[in-house]
Amino acid sequence: MKKPLLIVAAVFAVMVGILLWWFSDSQVIKRNTRNLAATLTIKLDDNKSTRAMKSQDFSALLAPSFRGSVDTDNHQGVITKDEAISGHQFLAFKCQFSQANVSEIEITRIEDNRATVTAQFEISLTTSGGASYSDEADGTLVWMRTKDEIWVLESAKLERKSP
Protein backbone atom coordinates (compact mmCIF):
# COMPACT_ATOMS: atom_id res chain seq x y z
CA MET A 1 0.00 0.00 0.00
CA LYS A 2 2.92 2.37 0.60
CA LYS A 3 4.31 1.97 -2.91
CA PRO A 4 1.24 3.49 -4.71
CA LEU A 5 1.20 6.33 -2.19
CA LEU A 6 4.88 7.08 -2.88
CA ILE A 7 4.24 7.08 -6.64
CA VAL A 8 1.30 9.47 -6.27
CA ALA A 9 3.34 11.74 -3.98
CA ALA A 10 6.28 11.76 -6.43
CA VAL A 11 4.02 12.56 -9.40
CA PHE A 12 2.33 15.32 -7.40
CA ALA A 13 5.68 16.82 -6.39
CA VAL A 14 6.90 16.81 -10.00
CA MET A 15 3.67 18.43 -11.23
CA VAL A 16 3.85 21.15 -8.55
CA GLY A 17 7.48 21.82 -9.45
CA ILE A 18 6.68 22.12 -13.15
CA LEU A 19 3.74 24.45 -12.45
CA LEU A 20 5.81 26.67 -10.15
CA TRP A 21 8.50 26.92 -12.84
CA TRP A 22 5.97 27.49 -15.69
CA PHE A 23 4.21 30.32 -13.86
CA SER A 24 7.35 31.90 -12.40
CA ASP A 25 7.87 35.56 -13.29
CA SER A 26 10.95 34.83 -15.39
CA GLN A 27 9.19 32.21 -17.53
CA VAL A 28 6.09 34.40 -18.02
CA ILE A 29 8.28 37.33 -19.09
CA LYS A 30 10.25 35.18 -21.55
CA ARG A 31 7.01 33.76 -23.01
CA ASN A 32 5.58 37.27 -23.36
CA THR A 33 8.74 38.39 -25.17
CA ARG A 34 8.41 35.47 -27.61
CA ASN A 35 4.67 36.21 -27.97
CA LEU A 36 5.53 39.80 -28.89
CA ALA A 37 7.61 38.52 -31.81
CA ALA A 38 4.83 36.09 -32.76
CA THR A 39 2.31 38.94 -33.02
CA LEU A 40 4.66 40.70 -35.44
CA THR A 41 4.88 37.64 -37.68
CA ILE A 42 2.26 37.69 -40.43
CA LYS A 43 2.18 34.73 -42.80
CA LEU A 44 1.39 35.11 -46.48
CA ASP A 45 -1.70 32.92 -46.17
CA ASP A 46 -3.03 34.50 -42.94
CA ASN A 47 -6.60 35.63 -43.52
CA LYS A 48 -8.05 38.94 -42.30
CA SER A 49 -9.42 37.38 -39.11
CA THR A 50 -6.04 35.93 -38.16
CA ARG A 51 -4.34 39.24 -38.88
CA ALA A 52 -6.92 41.11 -36.78
CA MET A 53 -6.44 38.67 -33.89
CA LYS A 54 -2.67 39.25 -34.02
CA SER A 55 -3.31 43.00 -33.72
CA GLN A 56 -5.55 42.34 -30.75
CA ASP A 57 -2.91 40.10 -29.14
CA PHE A 58 -0.25 42.77 -29.77
CA SER A 59 -2.42 45.44 -28.14
CA ALA A 60 -3.01 43.24 -25.07
CA LEU A 61 0.75 42.97 -24.48
CA LEU A 62 1.19 46.75 -24.20
CA ALA A 63 0.74 48.79 -21.02
CA PRO A 64 -1.54 51.85 -21.28
CA SER A 65 1.54 54.02 -20.72
CA PHE A 66 3.65 52.18 -23.35
CA ARG A 67 6.46 54.17 -24.97
CA GLY A 68 8.69 52.84 -27.71
CA SER A 69 11.92 54.10 -29.20
CA VAL A 70 13.31 52.84 -32.51
CA ASP A 71 16.63 53.66 -34.14
CA THR A 72 17.28 51.16 -36.93
CA ASP A 73 18.32 51.43 -40.56
CA ASN A 74 14.71 51.60 -41.79
CA HIS A 75 12.96 53.50 -38.99
CA GLN A 76 13.71 56.08 -36.34
CA GLY A 77 11.40 57.67 -33.83
CA VAL A 78 9.45 57.52 -30.62
CA ILE A 79 6.00 55.94 -30.50
CA THR A 80 3.09 55.77 -28.08
CA LYS A 81 0.79 52.82 -27.49
CA ASP A 82 -1.81 54.17 -29.93
CA GLU A 83 0.83 54.70 -32.62
CA ALA A 84 2.22 51.20 -32.03
CA ILE A 85 -1.24 49.65 -32.36
CA SER A 86 -2.04 51.66 -35.50
CA GLY A 87 1.33 50.68 -36.97
CA HIS A 88 0.68 47.03 -36.21
CA GLN A 89 -2.77 47.17 -37.82
CA PHE A 90 -1.25 48.81 -40.90
CA LEU A 91 1.42 46.09 -40.96
CA ALA A 92 -1.16 43.34 -40.55
CA PHE A 93 -3.41 44.51 -43.36
CA LYS A 94 -1.02 46.18 -45.81
CA CYS A 95 1.93 43.82 -45.99
CA GLN A 96 2.13 40.50 -47.77
CA PHE A 97 3.99 38.96 -44.88
CA SER A 98 6.38 39.76 -42.06
CA GLN A 99 8.71 37.71 -39.91
CA ALA A 100 9.97 38.63 -36.45
CA ASN A 101 12.48 36.51 -34.58
CA VAL A 102 13.72 37.10 -31.08
CA SER A 103 16.80 35.42 -29.66
CA GLU A 104 19.24 35.73 -26.77
CA ILE A 105 16.47 36.69 -24.36
CA GLU A 106 18.06 37.64 -21.07
CA ILE A 107 16.30 39.03 -18.02
CA THR A 108 18.83 41.51 -16.67
CA ARG A 109 16.76 42.67 -13.71
CA ILE A 110 13.57 41.72 -11.89
CA GLU A 111 12.53 43.75 -8.89
CA ASP A 112 9.09 44.26 -7.43
CA ASN A 113 6.75 44.81 -10.38
CA ARG A 114 9.26 45.56 -13.14
CA ALA A 115 11.59 43.46 -15.23
CA THR A 116 14.19 44.52 -17.77
CA VAL A 117 14.91 42.19 -20.68
CA THR A 118 17.53 42.39 -23.40
CA ALA A 119 17.12 40.46 -26.63
CA GLN A 120 18.13 40.37 -30.28
CA PHE A 121 15.40 41.08 -32.83
CA GLU A 122 15.39 40.27 -36.54
CA ILE A 123 12.47 41.71 -38.44
CA SER A 124 11.73 41.44 -42.14
CA LEU A 125 8.67 42.25 -44.20
CA THR A 126 7.41 42.44 -47.72
CA THR A 127 4.86 45.10 -48.56
CA SER A 128 1.81 44.50 -50.71
CA GLY A 129 3.71 46.34 -53.46
CA GLY A 130 6.56 43.84 -53.27
CA ALA A 131 9.21 45.98 -51.55
CA SER A 132 11.23 44.14 -48.90
CA TYR A 133 12.78 45.53 -45.71
CA SER A 134 14.76 43.92 -42.94
CA ASP A 135 16.40 45.10 -39.74
CA GLU A 136 18.38 43.59 -36.92
CA ALA A 137 18.20 45.34 -33.58
CA ASP A 138 19.32 45.11 -29.99
CA GLY A 139 16.21 45.38 -27.86
CA THR A 140 15.69 46.50 -24.29
CA LEU A 141 12.21 45.78 -23.00
CA VAL A 142 10.74 46.83 -19.67
CA TRP A 143 7.86 44.65 -18.52
CA MET A 144 5.53 45.83 -15.75
CA ARG A 145 3.26 43.69 -13.58
CA THR A 146 -0.26 45.14 -13.32
CA LYS A 147 -2.44 45.06 -10.23
CA ASP A 148 -4.14 42.04 -11.88
CA GLU A 149 -0.78 40.20 -11.85
CA ILE A 150 -0.38 40.41 -15.66
CA TRP A 151 2.98 41.33 -17.19
CA VAL A 152 2.61 44.03 -19.89
CA LEU A 153 5.21 45.90 -21.92
CA GLU A 154 5.86 49.34 -20.48
CA SER A 155 8.65 50.36 -22.83
CA ALA A 156 10.70 49.03 -25.71
CA LYS A 157 13.91 50.37 -27.16
CA LEU A 158 15.24 48.96 -30.44
CA GLU A 159 18.64 50.10 -31.64
CA ARG A 160 20.87 49.15 -34.54
CA LYS A 161 22.58 45.89 -33.76
CA SER A 162 26.04 46.38 -32.30
CA PRO A 163 28.86 45.10 -34.52
Rank of each mutant, 00 (worst) to 15 (best):
M1E: 10
K2M: 11
K3D: 11
P4T: 07
L5G: 06
L5I: 09
L5E: 05
L6Y: 07
A9E: 03
A10P: 01
F12L: 13
F12D: 04
A13M: 04
V14A: 13
G17N: 03
G17F: 00
I18G: 00
I18A: 03
L19V: 10
L19K: 02
W21F: 08
D25P: 04
Q27S: 03
K30F: 03
N32P: 02
N35S: 10
L36D: 05
L36E: 10
T39G: 05
T39A: 02
L40P: 03
L40Y: 04
D45G: 09
D45R: 12
D46K: 12
N47P: 13
N47Y: 01
S49I: 14
T50Y: 12
T50G: 01
R51Q: 13
R51P: 14
R51D: 08
A52Q: 10
A52D: 13
M53S: 14
K54F: 12
K54L: 14
S55G: 14
D57I: 11
F58H: 09
S59T: 12
S59Q: 15
A60S: 06
L62S: 02
F66I: 01
R67E: 13
G68N: 03
S69C: 14
V70K: 01
V70L: 15
D71M: 08
D71E: 08
D71S: 12
D73A: 08
N74F: 01
Q76K: 14
V78Y: 08
V78G: 12
K81G: 00
D82W: 05
D82K: 09
I85G: 00
I85F: 04
I85M: 00
S86V: 12
S86H: 08
G87I: 02
H88G: 03
L91Y: 08
L91K: 05
A92P: 06
A92I: 07
K94R: 11
C95T: 15
C95H: 15
Q99T: 12
I105H: 04
I105W: 00
I105Y: 03
E106G: 14
I107Y: 07
R109N: 08
R109T: 09
E111D: 10
N113K: 11
N113T: 13
N113R: 14
N113Q: 11
A115V: 02
A115K: 07
V117P: 01
V117A: 01
A119N: 07
A119D: 05
E122V: 02
E122P: 03
S124H: 01
L125D: 07
T126K: 15
T126G: 10
S128N: 11
G130N: 03
S132C: 03
S132R: 15
Y133M: 05
Y133I: 08
Y133H: 13
A137G: 03
D138N: 07
D138G: 05
G139M: 06
G139Q: 01
T140A: 02
T140C: 02
T140M: 07
V142F: 06
W143V: 11
W143A: 09
R145D: 06
D148Q: 13
I150A: 12
S155T: 15
A156Y: 09
A156L: 13
K157L: 12
K157S: 15
E159G: 14
R160Y: 06
R160I: 02
K161W: 04
S162V: 06
P163F: 05
P163T: 08
